[in-house]
């Protein structure tokens, strides 16, 4: 695999900053009452989403759970439309009917965020089955939280993918907590990539156990996922675990009694965006603070424009309320 060039790396940096600024604004808008329902922030996990999604080809597929803003933005969903969806406007990606947890764009093969833990995992297998059935050379990247590894859907979907050799990369974003329950309090296996062994045989058939990767390092994530995606394309399912950290609460209003301030601050200090910024400054002579600041400023402007767009957009109508229950 060719090493990503400077422009590519700068674009990943832009994507990560976009996710961060976008979500910071969402948190404000939530506090101000413009965004309702649940709001699960991806802050802290940007390197995993950006590294993984950028390992896909355009025709490949991505599907995730309800912590989906970062994945949607990394996949290139229109920022205005995503913000409009957050605000429940008819210009939103789902016309205001999906909300924060249900961001999708059919044309970009972003199959959605899904609100029920694990509920999207068999859908990922099904999309891969449809690709295989139609003899398309495409891979499905299915992201999930560590919490979803303990629900029956996980077992059934991963096993089915192994039986049918479906081209799926199962990527566990281990952010250390399923809501407020630490991984070791919820899972018999602390290293979650070892779950793959349950669906593989001694002769090497079945699911491949992929690596446990540093999910705070976008380059490491991209490299591991690029290999995993090509493995899945040629051979079938593979399970990768990305070690990451959610710097905000599970959802808005989480009192976070399950972890210490010091723990969170420790991860903040080594956050993925600061780390990547330092990497770029150290390794590329032509990249300086001013250049990165210009990216930051452009992103901020884009987010401000998205908020303005969303706020100026129309609310959904009664006609919208009752449409798309069925195919007419």
């Amino acid at each position: 695999m060719a090493k990503p060039n400077k422009d590519t790396l700068l674009d990943w940096y832009r994507q990560m900053v976009l996710i961060r600024r976008f979500e910071e604004r969402c948190a404000e808008l939530y506090q101000q009452g413009y965004i309702g329902g649940f709001l699960h922030l991806y802050i802290g996990q940007e390197a995993t989403g950006v590294g993984a999604v950028n390992a896909l080809r355009k025709e490949d597929h991505v599907i995730t759970a309800y912590r989906d803003h970062g994945i949607a933005l990394a996949r290139g969903l229109d920022v205005n439309a995503v913000m409009a969806e957050m605000l429940g406007k008819r210009t939103g990606t789902s016309g205001g009917k999906g909300g924060s947890m249900h961001l999708a764009d059919r044309d970009l093969h972003m199959w959605g965020g899904y609100g029920i833990v694990g509920g999207h995992l068999p859908l990922a297998a099904g999309i891969a089955l449809a690709a295989q059935y139609q003899e398309k050379d495409e891979v499905v990247l299915a992201l999930m939280g560590d919490g979803s590894t303990n629900i029956g859907y996980f077992h059934e979907a991963l096993n089915l993918s192994a039986v049918w050799k479906l081209p799926v990369v199962w990527l566990i974003e281990n952010n250390q907590y399923g809501m407020g329950t630490a991984v070791e309090r919820a899972s018999g296996a602390k290293e979650l990539n070892r779950r793959a062994m349950a669906y593989s045989s001694e002769d090497g058939s079945g699911m491949k156990q992929g690596p446990r990767i540093d999910g705070m390092d976008v380059i490491a994530v991209h490299e591991a996922l690029s290999e995993a995606v090509e493995y899945a394309r040629s051979n079938g399912p593979i399970l990768v675990e990305s070690l990451t950290y959610r710097l905000e609460g599970h959802s808005m209003g989480d009192p976070q009694r399950y972890r210490t301030k010091e723990e969170v601050e420790g991860f903040q200090a080594s956050g993925p965006i600061g780390r990547f910024r330092e990497y770029l400054l150290e390794n590329y002579k032509s990249v300086d603070d001013a250049a990165l600041d210009r990216i930051d400023a452009a992103v901020l402007e884009q987010v401000n424009e998205a908020v303005a767009f969303a706020q100026a957009s129309d609310d959904p109508t009664f006609e919208d309320l009752i449409s798309h229950v069925y195919v007419d």
């Binding site: 597929h61 199959w111 509920g119 995992l121 068999p122 859908l123 990922a124 297998a125 099904g126 999309i127 891969a128 089955l129 449809a130 690709a131 059935y133 139609q134 859907y153 059934e156 979907a157 089915l160």
Partner: peptide
């Protein structure tokens, strides 16, 4: 679930 995903695609 897999039938749903397949039908979507």
């Amino acid at each position: 679930g897999a039938a749903v995903g397949a039908a979507m695609y």
